[in-house]
Simulated assay, not measured.
Amino acid sequence: MSDKLLTLSGVHTHIGAYHILHGVELAVPRGQLTMLLGRNGAGKTTTLRTILGLWRASQGRIVFDGQDITQAATPQIAGRGIAYVPENMGIFADLTVKENMVLAARGAKNASQIDGERLQWIFSLFPAVEKFWNHPAGKLSGGQKQMLAVSRAIVEPRELLIIDEPSKGLAPAIINNMIGAFEQLKAKGVTILLVEQNINFAKRLGDTVAVMDNGVVVHAGSMKELAEDEELQHSLLGLAL
């Protein structure tokens, strides 16, 4: 069993008067892709945002690479090598694709200072990023914006990628392209925590899986085992994979 890069132990999160997470237990093995599944409103996005410090855990402990980050500020957490792609992608629409990438490459003041070999690798994963390099990011299609959002997250080496529903609203051909990119990232040893509603996406990519319901993790284990157990799928998700 791989060691755990990220663990959540008994994590509770309140947002205003609402108690959203009720003691989340989650382990993300190093070098694997962990799928976080569950019905809408189960607490998946809140879990991601709590890990990043965007919402503060009111109870429990979050440990990343042996360090307690429960009370750390979001910039400190990002500085440890965690990248986050939110569901809304968070791109700067008025900036060009190039300017978005330069902002994400914290060590670069201009595009020429981005690691050239890494940039060419990103272009090989997402040719649209190179094609529209000098275009305003707001003019891109939904799929192209998603490619840019993931490209920004990997423009520098990261220990952990946290991605919220990367296939949402995308055409099947673009989803296949995204799957290929994540497979390459996995091959490079990048650890990924991914929220996804596309079940075929989850089956093809996931190593481990955690299923949430009502603010807690109700199942954790092998993605392959869940994909092969229709009765378990129905009980956890109300559907068959």
Rank of each mutant, 00 (worst) to 15 (best):
S2D: 13
I69A: 04
A17P: 13
M101H: 02
V190A: 12
M147S: 12
I62Y: 11
R80G: 12
K98Q: 14
G41Y: 10
I174T: 00
L232Q: 13
F123I: 09
I122V: 12
M89I: 14
Q146L: 08
S9L: 11
A220D: 04
K98C: 13
L33A: 07
Y84D: 11
I192Y: 04
K145S: 08
F132N: 11
G180W: 02
H219Y: 15
A220T: 11
A17L: 14
D65P: 01
A108I: 05
Q144K: 02
T34C: 08
E196C: 04
L26V: 12
L37K: 07
L241H: 03
A57L: 04
N134G: 12
Q67Y: 09
R61D: 09
I51W: 06
I20P: 07
F92G: 05
G107I: 03
I192V: 14
W55M: 14
G31H: 08
V211M: 04
G107E: 00
G53Q: 02
L26K: 08
M89L: 15
V28W: 06
V97R: 11
Q197W: 05
A137V: 12
K44N: 05
A149I: 02
I69Q: 11
G31A: 02
A72V: 06
V63N: 11
N177G: 14
N214D: 14
L239H: 08
H14C: 14
A111W: 12
L226W: 10
N198K: 02
M178E: 03
T34A: 10
L26M: 03
M35Q: 01
D213W: 03
L194F: 06
N176I: 12
K98H: 13
F182C: 09
G10F: 01
H22L: 02
P172H: 02
L226D: 04
T74K: 04
I62P: 08
A137C: 06
G215V: 02
D207P: 03
W55Q: 15
G81F: 10
L239C: 13
D94G: 14
W133G: 00
K4S: 15
E165S: 09
N40A: 06
D229L: 05
I15R: 07
A83P: 05
H14Y: 14
S167K: 07
D115H: 07
R204G: 08
A137S: 05
G107A: 09
L36R: 09
T45C: 00
L95K: 02
S2K: 13
V155A: 08
H12R: 09
T96S: 13
F201Q: 10
G43V: 01
D207L: 10
L193F: 05
A202H: 01
T50S: 05
L33R: 04
G169T: 09
E99C: 01
K145Y: 03
K145P: 03
S141A: 05
P136G: 09
K4A: 15
L205I: 05
M223H: 10
L54M: 01
A171Q: 05
Q233L: 01
T13E: 04
R39W: 10
R61E: 14
P136I: 08
P166A: 06
K168C: 14
P29N: 00
T45F: 03
P29D: 10
Q32G: 01
D164Y: 02
H14T: 13
L8K: 00
L160D: 06
M101N: 06
Q144D: 07
K4R: 15
H12F: 12
W133S: 04
F132H: 14
E130C: 08
L170N: 04
D213T: 05
V217A: 08
L33N: 06
E159S: 15
V97I: 01
E25H: 07
G81R: 00
D207V: 04
